[in-house]
Computed example of a mutant assay.
Amino acid sequence: MSSSFPAVIDLNVGGRHLTTSLSTLTKYPDSMLAAMFSGRHPVAKDQDGRYFIDVDGDVFVHILNFLRFGKMPPPERAQDVNEYAEYFGIQELKAPVTEDFEKVLY
C-alpha cells in the first residue's frame, strides 16, 4: 500500500460524503478499490480534498457495509449492489437479486 494515503479516507461518492478506513477500501487486493487506494491508479479529489468516486453514494454505502462487516444489502438494493460489486471487482459480494429473495421467502 502506498503511504501517500492516510489511514482514514474522506470520500465524495456521487456527492455523498463518506468516511472509511484505508484498510476497508483495500480489503480485497484484487478489487478496483484496492487498486485505486494503493497508489497504482490516480484518484481524483474534489475541491475539499475528498477522494472522488463517480457513482451513486446511496448504493456505494452498501459496498462499504459489506467491506466493513460482511453485511449483505437489503433485497430491494441487491441488483444495484451486484452491478457495483462487478464494476469494483468485489467477487466476494454476490448479493442475491430481489427475485431470488422472493422465491426463497414465498
Rank of each mutant, 00 (worst) to 15 (best):
N82K: 11
T26Y: 03
R77P: 00
P29A: 09
F101V: 12
V97W: 05
E76L: 01
K94G: 05
I53M: 04
M32N: 08
Y28I: 15
S4D: 15
T98M: 14
R16H: 09
K27P: 08
D48F: 07
N65E: 15
Y28L: 12
K103V: 12
L105N: 12
D46N: 10
F101Y: 10
V81M: 02
V59H: 04
E86R: 05
K103I: 13
R40H: 06
A35M: 12
E99V: 11
N12K: 07
D80G: 01
P42E: 13
P42N: 11
F69E: 14
V104F: 13
V59K: 07
A35K: 14
E76D: 14
G39E: 10
D56Q: 02
K45M: 14
T19P: 05
M1S: 13
P42L: 10
V97S: 04
K94M: 09
F66M: 09
H41D: 07
I53R: 03
L93N: 00
I53K: 02
L11F: 03
P6W: 00
Q91R: 15
E76Q: 10
G15Y: 03
K94A: 11
A35W: 01
L93V: 03
R50D: 05
V8Q: 12
L18H: 01
K94I: 09
L93I: 02
Y28T: 09
D100C: 06
T98H: 11
T26C: 14
F69D: 15
Q79E: 15
L67M: 09
S38M: 06
P73F: 02
F37K: 03
N12G: 08
R40W: 01
Y28G: 02
E86N: 06
T26K: 06
Q79L: 13
D54M: 05
P42H: 10
A85I: 06
A95N: 01
Y106R: 13
F69I: 06
A34H: 09
K45E: 12
G49Q: 07
Y84A: 02
M36G: 06
P73T: 00
F37C: 06
G14R: 07
F88N: 05
V55P: 02
H41G: 00
Q79F: 06
